[in-house]
Amino acid sequence: MTDLDPNRTPVLAAGCVLWRRSTPDGALRLCLVHRPKYDDWSHPKGKLKRGEDPLAGAVREVAEETGYTAVPGAELSTVTYMVRGRPKQVRYWAAEAATGGFTPNKEVDRILWLPPEEARKRLTQFRDRELLDELTAALRLG
């Protein structure tokens, strides 16, 4: 977490650590998105629209970036970091993938459904790995 400059209003965003169970073994799989603009792998997330509820924004962003409907669960950490000299604050939720299917778009050109350890290796940012740990802990607890 990065300290916020009290003189700068943060960019507000929201996203989900999206998961599902594979068939037929029921193993946990996490959805990672590849953003060609940054050439990175991350969890689906994006900026909130003016006045948008953060959870609604997180679900919207998952649908826009992955094509899947998210069924939100536990709220995870809020992550704050700097982008071009301005703080960005992203609220995250654990969310199970329901119906849907991916179609490449200008923001996300690929998604992967990976086991947790493979997802950990693929994620570009350390902060995203911490969210992965939170999700797996939340699913173990219940």
Rank of each mutant, 00 (worst) to 15 (best):
M1T: 08
D3K: 12
D5F: 12
T9K: 05
T9W: 13
V11Q: 08
V11C: 05
V11A: 07
A13R: 04
A14E: 02
L18Q: 03
L18R: 05
R21M: 08
D25C: 11
A27N: 10
A27M: 14
A27S: 09
L28D: 00
R29K: 07
R29D: 08
R29C: 04
L30V: 11
L30I: 12
V33H: 00
R35Q: 11
P36T: 05
P36K: 00
D40W: 15
D40I: 13
S42A: 09
H43W: 15
K47W: 10
K47R: 14
K49T: 13
G51Q: 09
E52F: 02
E52C: 05
D53F: 07
P54C: 01
A56R: 07
G57Q: 01
V62H: 02
V62N: 03
A63T: 10
E64L: 14
E65N: 08
T66V: 06
G67A: 03
G67I: 09
Y68G: 06
Y68I: 09
T69F: 14
A70D: 05
A70P: 04
V71E: 07
P72T: 00
G73W: 04
A74P: 13
S77H: 08
S77R: 07
V79L: 11
V79R: 03
Y81P: 08
M82W: 14
M82F: 14
G85N: 04
G85R: 01
R86F: 15
P87K: 03
Q89A: 07
Q89G: 03
V90I: 08
W93Q: 03
A94T: 02
E96C: 09
A98I: 07
A98G: 15
G100I: 10
G100E: 06
G101H: 08
F102E: 08
F102V: 11
T103A: 10
T103I: 13
P104M: 06
E107M: 11
E107R: 05
V108R: 01
V108M: 00
V108S: 02
D109F: 00
D109M: 09
R110E: 08
L112W: 13
P115I: 09
P116H: 05
P116M: 03
L123K: 01
Q125S: 11
R127M: 08
D128H: 14
D128V: 15
R129F: 07
L132C: 09
L132N: 10
L132H: 15
L132I: 12
T136R: 11
T136K: 09
A137E: 14
A137D: 15
A137Q: 10
L139E: 02
L139V: 09
R140S: 13
G142V: 06
